[in-house]
Amino acid sequence: MAAQSDETQMSFFTTENRRLADVIVARYPKRRSATIPLLHLAQEQHGWICDDAMIEIADLVDATPAEVKGTGTFYEMFKFHPVGKYVVNICGTMSCKLMGADELMNHAEQKLGVAVGETTEDGLFTLEHAECQAACTEAPTLQVNYRHEYRVTTDDFDRLVDDLTAGRRDGDIPAHGTLARIRQEIPANRAVGAVPPEEVDGPPAWLPQEGA
């Protein structure tokens, strides 16, 4: 929703996430580098990337909202429309293809009652074709919100869907948008701190000067 006036403008990020966003931005020599991490943070909060998120991120990284959108739309993990609580990615690249990915995808479409690319009516599942998931020896593979499932049979798939629907996987598979649940935290007394490159004019302290 557009801001009504400067007085009542609501920020997209929650107070805690805004604090996190400031911490993330400060880690880079140039603010713009925080664009992708902040898009992830926005997706974690909201499930997908909305305009308000991009407007606020633009402000945080010294870019225009169009530049943030330009960057975001290049990357497949960012969704610019609502998706299911669980995004199910079935790998179709070579090793998975050789080991039965097509059968698995056909079965998934039947089980979920949607075509690849679509979301179930209850908003629980979005089914997607994916490219190599770096688990080729365990083919065919899929990821639910980027958590791997290995050597998936059609029975396994049915069980997975039933478990997710019943909430039995809530402990290990968070809703779409949340990636890592452990964040990097740099203690203030240990941090070196990021310095803009133009403010550095010599070698670091531990490197002997040339010819010295």
Partner: peptide, 13 residues
Amino acid sequence: FSLDIILHWGAGA
């Protein structure tokens, strides 16, 4: 010797 190591996220490409 001082060094910050920053964990950065890709997003699928």
